[in-house]
Nucleic acid binder design. Sequence first.
DNA 1: GCCGTTTTCGGCCCGACTGTTTTCAGTCG
Length: 571
Amino acid sequence: MPVHNAEIAEMFDQTAELLEIKGDNPFRTRAYRRAARVLEGLPKSAAAMLSAGEDLAELPGIGHDLAGKIASIVETGKFDVLQSLKRELPGDLGEIVAIPGLGPKRVKVLIDELGVRSIEDVRRAVKSGRLNELRGFGPKLQKNIAAALAKPVAVKRFKLPFAEAEATALIEWLRGGLDGGQVVVAGSFRRRRDTVGDLDVLATSANAAAVGDRLAHYENVAQVIAHGPTRTTVVLRSGIQVDLRVVEEKSYGAALLYFTGSKAHNIALRNIAVDRGWKLNEYGLFSKTRSIAGAPEAEIYKKLGLQFVPPELREDRGEIALAQKNALPKLVQLSDIRGDLHVHSNWSDGDAPIAEMAQAARARGYEYMALTDHSRRVTVAHGLDRARLLRQIREVDRLNGKLRGFTVLKGVEVDILADGSLDLPDEVLSRLDIVVAAVHYKFDLPRDEQTERIIRAMDNPRVSVLAHPTGRLIEERGPYDIDVDRVMKAAKERGCCLELNAEPDRLDLTDVAAKAAKALGVKIAISTDAHSTAGLAYMRYGVDQARRGWLEPDDVINTRPLRELKKLIRR
DNA sequence: GCCGTTTTCGGCCCGACTGTTTTCAGTCG
């Protein structure tokens, strides 16, 4: 059973946490955390890199020591450093440090003075009043801890449409209290991550306190966490946290840069500034106390000798080195998209007739749309059998006869059966313009079986695109257990494309996987999987994710005019 | 633990807010 990068990253994060509690060298703990982030952003599994003879120490943030530790984890599945730390500091310490206000230092005090090992121990300590004996645990902190214990906040991330709705209403409210000035959402929202943990809002005003006050008085605020002169943190009724930062106009670019992150990207930029004898913070780029740049974000990159880095790339995954060489990818944009290659109609589980979907796609400025209703096995979606699909083909032919300057591609989302065969006979599939294949049942097959099932489906040369390749549903269902490396290599060998499903509950492939696909030369279809005319609008989420995966127009098949597209989807 | 035209040791991003304490540590982003 190969060890996933995410598992190694988790081991390193836990190690960092325990080292922090021990009071170890903070730069050592940071090294573990940085390595964890690097592993998460790696396009290939460390295990595969090692077996290919690659030297992990060449990765940024990973030296010979950690490279050796990763190799040992890959080999044994265990991390001896973490195991001995756990013996030294037993219990569920991770849960305890997750309580707001309890960091490593205070947890150490709880362990040493009261022998606390679990959240239950903390609860008992609060009730018994034993915290009063401890230095640094005043009445307010105790009250906050008690409140957090009473209402444990589930660690949750929010999907983009929800975050957008919350952000739009909030920004409107904040703008209502400003005469001019900027109000923008930065953070992972601006970087267009598939989910956001909170909303980082940046405003410019000469009267920072007034903006903070206005946030605190927003009707949807459930709780004010912190409220200082330039920074205010609240939790909205919906559970999402909002961090507001207010700066003067002259610092807007620097503050936007700082508040957009990612943290790793910021640290890398600040290090470049330090190398030049400067200082970069949220107020500007400074030489001693003299400001060199600050208002437009782009100017800061320029002064640091860097090409402007689009927010989607700011993850410290190699973008800075490329920006230094003026060699960043020219990322795909929504306006590059010429059609949608995964669309349902009311013939299966969609809401609208084919003609309406086509009309809506055309209204988006597209040249084509692939109609890909479900196949018969997907009974809950009224999947099409041979006879109905043949009827649908005739209907699409009739419709295309009436349309001018727009083409409905005849297609299907054919179900991949448990043994990797397809749910419709080749004789029918061969009459279509495009075949999109997908798994909808049997998510729990063992890894090898699941991987081979999918590869076998791609063995069929009629299959043009593998839809939602990992099957994940964000915050609901993890990916099915497949060897993504193998699936991608198989797709490359067979000339099959992979889908980046733009539906914001899916966003499947992930950013990291899309980047890996590009590295292998696998072409991507960004498709909405729309089940209604409104669903076609999800395309922008798919493009955002593709940009995070470093994709350029050439990597994406549905940026091509119809004639060129057709060459790519028939094998 | 990483890293290097300030190199193999001695640095390591930078600042806001809270609570407790009396000048600042801890936490958080």
